[in-house]
Simulated scan of single mutants.
Amino acid sequence: MAGYAGITAGYLILGDRPCLVETGTSTSAPVVRDALTSLGVGPDDLASVVVTHIHLDHAGGVGDIAGYYPSAEIVVHEKGARHLADPSRLMASARMVWGDQLDSLFGSLAPTDAARIRTLGDTGSVDLGGGRVLAGHYSPGHAKHHVGLLDSATGDLYVGDAAGVYLPETGDLRPATPPPDFDLETALRSVALFGDLRPQRLLFSHYGPVADVAATLERSAEELRVWVDLTKQAHAAGMDLDHAVAMVRDKTRERYAALAFEDAETAERFELLSGAPSNVAGIMHWLDLAKPESI
Rank of each mutant, 00 (worst) to 15 (best):
A176I: 04
S71C: 11
G130L: 05
L134Y: 07
L272I: 12
H77W: 02
T23M: 12
H285Q: 12
A163K: 04
D127V: 02
D263P: 08
P18D: 11
Y166Q: 09
W227R: 12
Q200E: 13
G63N: 05
P168V: 08
D250C: 03
A5Y: 03
I54A: 04
V228T: 15
A257I: 05
S26G: 02
F194L: 10
S104D: 14
S274V: 09
A85Q: 12
L157A: 01
H58Q: 06
T27W: 03
G40N: 10
E222T: 01
G130S: 06
Y138V: 00
D103N: 09
T266D: 03
V191C: 11
A94D: 06
G282E: 08
A192R: 13
R249T: 02
A29N: 07
M239P: 00
H142E: 10
T177F: 08
D181C: 08
V62Q: 05
V126Q: 08
T8W: 04
L90P: 04
P87D: 03
L149K: 09
S108T: 14
D263K: 09
P180S: 14
G195S: 12
F194N: 02
T25L: 10
V97R: 12
L56D: 06
Y138T: 03
V159T: 14
V213S: 04
D181M: 08
Y69N: 10
F270V: 15
R225Y: 08
D183H: 01
P178N: 10
K144W: 05
T8S: 09
P209N: 08
S152E: 14
S278R: 15
R253H: 14
R82E: 13
T170K: 12
S152V: 12
S220V: 00
P292W: 05
K251R: 15
G136F: 01
A94W: 02
T8P: 04
M91C: 00
I117T: 03
D113F: 00
G136I: 00
S104K: 14
D240F: 03
P111H: 07
H137V: 04
I65P: 01
E262R: 13
G275V: 03
D161F: 10
T231V: 13
E169M: 03
D45W: 04
E271V: 07
P277V: 11
D16T: 10
R225E: 14
E73D: 15
L84M: 04
A264V: 15
L20C: 02
R249N: 02
P87R: 05
L259F: 15
L193Y: 00
Y4P: 01
V31I: 15
D45T: 07
S152D: 08
D263I: 03
I283V: 15
S220W: 05
V31P: 08
D212I: 01
Q101N: 11
D183N: 06
A215S: 11
D212G: 01
V133R: 15
A258S: 14
F106E: 00
G171H: 11
E169S: 06
